[in-house]
């Protein structure tokens, strides 16, 4: 019948072709969704983690930073907590000049309470990279098991990730036992971290962390970090250990207040 009605045949062919094309597109889209994060095309199905994420709370927002740092969660072993408080007391009194920040940045089991700076997420096929202003770079491999050649210990640990709906779930092992969970509290051996990272709303990132560290914690520690999106924020190096630090004298290894005027200081106002 179609032979006798060329226009009908042409229309039918177009409909069939369109249907096949739509089917292909649908199939491709479905595959892309299933393999989200594994191909460049599939990245568009991931939640928007773009921009710079600034930690909520002090020091980036008003708040009682001293109170935040004075209290430890009850999961911390009592003897560890006592050591932390003693060290903190020494630091606050000026008796202890702590230069642990001159060690390379290390992932200590949870993203910090803010003092390491803001975060950036980079999505590439099979990988998510988190850059922290402190200099720490975390590489998250989208796979079920750690790569075969993963190092037993490294500064960022070995992170594998997967998408559960709109939530990025990251499991990290292979952390350096010397990494600081808190100042004066090293993670110790056998630490393991699970993070669930998601958008709480359009411009708020929520990071739920469960840290297991048997040498310092009585039980897995749950914590939540909140970050606010600043799309136009310029990534700013957060370097605490520099050669010309006005607050530290490298020769005497003591703190100072170096009030040497800058070499390019403009002259005082004319009378």
């Amino acid at each position: 019948m179609l032979r006798n009605h060329p226009m009908v045949a042409a229309c039918a062919a177009i409909v069939v072709a369109a249907g096949l094309a739509a089917g292909d597109a649908l199939a491709a889209g479905t595959n892309a969704i299933r393999s989200r994060g594994m191909t460049y095309d599939s990245l568009k199905y991931l939640p928007d983690f773009g921009g710079s994420w600034v930690p909520a709370g002090p020091p980036f927002e008003p708040g009682d930073l001293a109170a935040l740092r004075a209290t430890l969660p009850p999961e911390v072993r009592p003897e560890i907590a006592a050591r932390y408080q003693e060290g903190r007391k020494q630091i606050l009194s000026g008796a202890l000049v702590e230069r642990g920040y001159c060690e390379p940045p290390t992932f200590g089991g949870r993203l910090r309470d803010g003092a390491a700076g803001s975060l950036e997420f980079l999505f590439t096929p099979g990988r998510i990279t988190i850059a922290v202003e402190s200099g720490l770079v975390r590489r998250i491999y989208l796979r079920d098991t750690p790569p075969e050649n993963a190092l037993p210990e490294s500064r960022g640990g070995t992170s594998i990730g997967r998408w559960e709906g709109r939530t990025l779930v990251v499991e990290t092992s292979g952390l350096s036992p010397a990494a600081a969970f808190l100042p004066g509290i090293a993670l110790g051996h056998g630490a393991h971290v699970v993070e669930r990272i998601s958008l709480q709303d359009a411009n708020t990132l929520r990071v739920e962390t469960i840290t297991t560290a048997p040498e310092i914690l009585l039980a897995p520690l749950k914590s939540v970090g909140i970050y606010r999106r600043k799309r136009d924020r310029m990534f700013t190096d957060f370097d605490t250990c520099v050669q010309d630090d006005r607050s530290y004298d490298a020769k005497s290894r003591s703190e100072q207040f170096d009030a040497t005027p800058p070499s390019d200081l403009p002259p005082p106002p004319a009378h």
Binding site: E98, G100, F107, A115, R155, A180, Y248
Partner: peptide, 16 residues
């Protein structure tokens, strides 16, 4: 204290 620390400590403060 430093030996125990060993890693990132920016959370506390840059100095006293």
């Amino acid at each position: 204290f430093s030996a125990l620390l060993g890693g990132e400590s920016k959370v506390l403060a840059h100095h006293t």
